[in-house]
């Protein structure tokens, strides 16, 4: 081991350059990447591995995939997961009605059954659902599998083949391999423990609420017309509210909504009155609102 001073891991001079490019590209598409996110995207690209993104609702998990597809000029194929999603809706389905029509149309002609059967299990009769579409696409694609934690366990197993080998096996047709391996992003709100097998195949990115600087940057990027000092106040208030013990913490998208609302109100500076009256943009539960209002009133020396 002594000679391991020779690093097996090449210090890569390109790396930091590529990461800067990623950040720049994502910013152009309206997404502010932290170093962490940019690094994850870089590694995922290099390793050709799916990225599993987890975090509280509204921190920009889905947005990440959208911006990524914009940056890579790739088509975004989205599979929204829900309970009871099955392979017919996610992978492929035989177009039963078309097959039936085809058989009826063939009835007059002298064709033996084997021939017909061969015909109707052709790719023409295959309805591509998002996963198959992503695999067979000629163009580069970003495949977003949204809220993977909502599907049943069995469906997760179905994804394993796609995630590790970028291929799908259809019994009647054989294995279809990806022409362009899609860039896969899975998002999860962690309402259920995902299986080890799935997690093993992915890189894991935990997205939390951003730190103050980044959140401020995001507000400035998305609501550029808002004066700087107001943006800062907004972010500070949101962060303070997040630290309180409330039912639903305000997410980034709610911060942005609120920032826009404040902007349209045309105030110069945030005061108690403004915060109180616009709180319903930020908070979605009556109890939460009462709690914040109360704190606001007790903390303010009028």
């Amino acid at each position: 081991m002594q000679n391991s001073a020779v690093l097996p891991f090449g210090p890569n001079s390109d790396q930091s350059k590529i990461i800067d490019e990623i950040k720049e590209g994502m910013k152009e598409n309206g997404y502010l990447c932290s170093d962490t996110i940019a690094n994850v995207l870089y590694l995922a690209e290099k390793l050709q591995k799916p990225v599993l993104v987890e975090g509280p609702a509204g921190v920009g998990k889905t947005e990440l995939a959208k911006a990524l597809s914009g940056m890579k000029k790739a088509e975004l194929i989205r599979l929204q997961c829900y309970e009871g999603l099955d392979e017919a809706k996610a992978l492929y389905e035989w177009n039963y009605k078309k097959q039936l029509l085809h058989i009826q149309a063939m009835q007059g002609k002298d064709l033996d059954w084997e021939k017909i059967e061969e015909n109707i299990f052709d790719e023409d009769f295959l309805l591509s659902r998002p996963l198959l579409k992503a695999i067979t696409s000629d163009k580069p694609t970003v495949l977003l599998i949204d809220e993977i934690d909502k599907v049943d366990l069995e469906f997760e197993a179905l994804l394993l083949e796609i995630l590790s080998d970028f291929q799908i096996s259809i019994p009647e047709l054989g294995t279809i391999k990806a022409k362009n391996p899609p860039f896969v992003i899975l998002t999860s709100n962690n309402t259920r423990e995902l299986t080890e097998a799935l997690k093993r195949r992915c890189l894991f990115l935990f997205l939390d609420y951003p730190d103050m600087d980044r959140e401020l940057e995001i507000v400035k990027l998305k609501v550029p017309e808002l004066p700087e000092h107001l943006a800062k106040q907004i972010v500070r208030v949101v962060r303070l509210i997040r630290s309180m013990d409330i039912k639903k913490s305000p997410s980034i998208s709610e911060t942005l909504d609120w920032a826009r609302a404040i902007f349209y109100l045309g105030v110069d500076s945030l005061d108690r009155q403004t915060v109180e009256t616009t709180l319903n943009v930020l908070l979605k539960y009556q109890g939460d609102m009462e709690r914040v209002t109360q704190s606001l009133r007790s903390g303010l020396r009028v």
Partner: peptide, 12 residues
Amino acid sequence: ALTHVSVFDKQA
């Protein structure tokens, strides 16, 4: 993954 990052970049 380590073959793609520089060990001199702590964060990466």
